[in-house]
Design a protein around this nucleic acid. Sequence first.
RNA 1: GAGUCGGUAGCUCAGUAGGUAGAGCAGCGGCCUUUUAAGCCGCGGGUCCUGGGUUCGAGCCCCAGCCGGCUCACCA
Length: 528
Amino acid sequence: MSDTANEREIRLGKLARLREIGYDPYAVESFPFTETAENLKDTTAQREGEVVPFAGRIVSRREMGKSQFLHLSDGADRFQIYVRKNDIDDAAWEALNLLDLGDHLGVVGSLFITKTGEPSLQVSELKPLSKSLHVVPIPKQRGEEQWYGLTDTNVRFRHRHLDLITNPDARRTLVDRSRIVTAVRRCFNAWGYLEVETPMLQQEAGGAAARTFSAHYNAYDLEVDLRISLELYLKRILCGDIPRVYEIGRVFRNEGVSNRHNPEFTLLEFYEAYADLEVMMQRVEDLFRTVATEVFGSPLVRIKRESQDGDIVSEDVAGFSEDEVVLDFGKPWRRVDLLSAIEEHSGLTAEDLSSLQNAKAALKNRNVVNPVTGKRINAEEERHLGGLIEKLLEVFVEPHLQEPSFVIGYPLETSPLAKKDPNRPGFTRRFEGYVLGREICNAFSEINDPIDQRERFQAQMAERASGDDEAHPMDEDFLYALESGMPPTGGCGIGMDRMVMLLTGARHIRQVMFFPMMRPEGHAPDED
RNA sequence: GAGUCGGUAGCUCAGUAGGUAGAGCAGCGGCCUUUUAAGCCGCGGGUCCUGGGUUCGAGCCCCAGCCGGCUCACCA
């Protein structure tokens, strides 16, 4: 991004002149005012003549010789000011004329309504508060309509401040995200959970299957990994008789980027002693209902799909139309048994799914195809039944999980931290929540049998030895904690970014990340 | 990673058949003391993503690459 040198020089020249005449914008430290543009607009009619201060970014300007109208934006809304040469001294008038769209301006004036009916402020004092040294893309608008603005997603993601200035949706998403996170915290605090923080730099990152980022710690001359989950440290706190904890924190996974993956993302995990799967499902239902109600005013969340560039917004419940989805977080989520769901949607039988051998044979002989791609399911590389079952879940079941749903009963091999299901060998007491076909949470009854946990880790080590470099590492410190005794515990993880995507209708994780990972411009990736 | 679409002025975009780049907004100069996508007159502004190639001549055609969007794949 570069402005023409000319543009910048012109503005630097104006800045120099502002300083000469005693209106150095950067010298100002404060400009107190309390009312929002929206509030001023709403109350001007009742307060005509009242003198009030206001400040904001100059987003429009109409000059008429010895008077001019400008709109100042406080970010959320804009308010019109009217400046007449006769109302202010000559230096102030010159200062005003040295300002550009994009500069910040503070004014004091009296409220009035113009001939055309717009609430406005007739300015008696003004003070430039900052100068923009390059052209800020300011959208033009009339009512709800908007012209121009900034549409290049490349620029929007790399220079998010411009996106926030220009696109109301970007601003709305930021506000919504903040409110959602606040509402989540309020929920857990109300339920008696303690918010804790655990190490990001770890010697052996565990709790999930993912490749790590590494770093070097100079003082101990130690190679460390950035964490990939919160799980193991949180459970060590449970072992210390803190019965309800949660953490909302950044984790780092050294994997690819997609519309729903970013290498660093925000994970919520919560653990509750003496609680099982049922309680966890209850918590998830309560959480989504409460957050939706608190942030959007209703447990009914309306997700609207907008035209071209994939921007989607969610709004309140009024005025539905056809290309919208309405999710009701007010009612209990659907509950689905994982294996039964696969049988129902794939045509495979319980017999087929009873062993890896049978499953591979059935897929081979019966020409079972992926309903989306039409291609046959390739199961040859699967090393164990659990992996194949999860793959079948993705292909056949996920598309049917549009309504908020819990899928219950995950395979043992892919659930190294979940308690075994005593009634069903090879499966665990684990569920995942799905909404609109996407995984939204992962929960289970935590293993508190240290012998079992050790065996699971050993099984993972064997996986690792046979080539799965994402298999879970052994963690002796964690096992030592478990051996000291952890009460039966339910735990759950929710990707906050995906939760925000869901509730705000964002299609791309970059819309809710604000500063997503972007490949540097003009550099090819290194050869691997 | 594959397919596909896009990258032209600060922003939004156009660019015909290959003939040496345009509009609106923004900017600069002038006029205008209730305008609101203000208006009127005048002016300046370009690494046409990058690098090769074809051609007398390339924004346009060909090749390679970069960045991004979308779809798919990968991904606890």
